[in-house]
Design a binder for these strands. Structure first.
Length: 286
DNA sequence: ATGGCCGCGCGTCGCGGA
């Protein structure tokens, strides 16, 4: 029996958070919870500043698309998890798509790629940093809805070509009231408003499954906590980072959890990583 | 305790984040 772990983490500046990232990857490995694929969001750096070498020394190949100050996404894959035919950057990241086709955007928010593993059949990864939206009624909110509509169309096409698909990232949407620390205070606001939740449901309507809700979870599990007002200490958070999986992956998905540990460290990201485990009977591509 | 943040940039406050 072999396992594959796929994670998402908004690091809120990779420059500041690289030590946390390396420490977390190492800690996971030490705990027999090695991360095989990691989608990162909010790199906040240009491509020339991406820490390719440091991550390579940690055993990971990197696909990334950054910009100055804002946004930026990456997909990391553990080299040792890839088949022997996919051992360098050019062969590891196949069928790369940068941003949403047909959606003109100067913000770097989406990477899609296909990975070929030793442990299991190929998997399509779509890593997104969904727009924040600021507040309903603003231009940024309109942009968020347009981005979501374009993504919805893109995912329809992707599912036709890639039955084994994970749509992961910082969705900036808390899908249900149970994903919000104080639902009454947040009614109609950004991250929980009806149109945003409507788009989240529309992804489920395509057959995607919220991996987190496949399993019994303790109440009040969140993935983001505001830096202000002692959000983390009060567990005043939201669950806005998600891994949606296609039906073909549902049967082998055996766990999904938020790892709060890195949020407790000094100078943390305001988001915690979320991890899914895929369990396969045996190796298929030795 | 009802309120306190953080990262970035030709910056020393304003913006964006969520």
């Amino acid at each position: 029996m072999s396992e594959l772990r796929i994670a998402t983490w908004n690091v809120n500046s990779l420059k500041v958070r690289l030590p946390h990232l390396l420490k977390w990857l190492e800690a996971c490995q030490k705990n027999q919870q090695t991360i095989d694929v990691l989608g990162l969001q909010e790199l906040k750096l240009t491509d020339d500043k991406f820490p390719v070498e440091e991550l390579a020394r940690a055993g990971y190949l990197s696909l990334f698309m950054g910009q100055k100050t804002y946004n930026g996404v990456a997909v990391l894959v553990r080299q040792a998890s890839l088949t022997h035919l996919n051992q360098d950057v050019d062969t590891a990241f196949l069928q790369v798509q940068k941003n949403i086709p047909g959606f003109v955007d100067d913000q770097q928010r989406l990477l899609a790629t296909t990975l070929h593993f030793k442990q299991t059949q190929p998997i399509r990864i779509i890593c997104g940093y969904f727009p924040n939206g600021q507040a309903p009624g603003t231009e940024k909110f309109d942009y968020k809805l347009k981005w979501l509509e374009a993504l919805h169309q893109f995912v329809i096409t992707e599912l036709q070509h890639h039955p084994r698909l994970v749509l992961l990232g910082d969705y900036n949407i808390a899908p249900q009231d149970e994903d919000v620390h104080d639902p009454a205070a947040w009614v109609g606001q950004n991250l929980v408003s009806e149109p945003e939740r409507g788009f989240f449901q529309s992804f489920l309507g395509l057959g995607l499954i919220d991996s987190f809700r496949m399993f019994t979870q303790a109440p009040k599990i969140f993935s983001w906590w505001d830096y202000r007002m002692m959000g983390f200490r009060r567990n005043a958070g939201m669950r806005i980072d998600h891994l949606l999986i296609s039906p073909a992956l549902k049967a082998i998905c055996s766990a999904c959890h938020v790892d709060k540990e890195p949020r407790k460290w000094e100078q943390p990201s305001d988001h915690a990583p979320v991890v899914i485990t895929l369990t396969q009977e045996e190796s298929v591509n030795p």
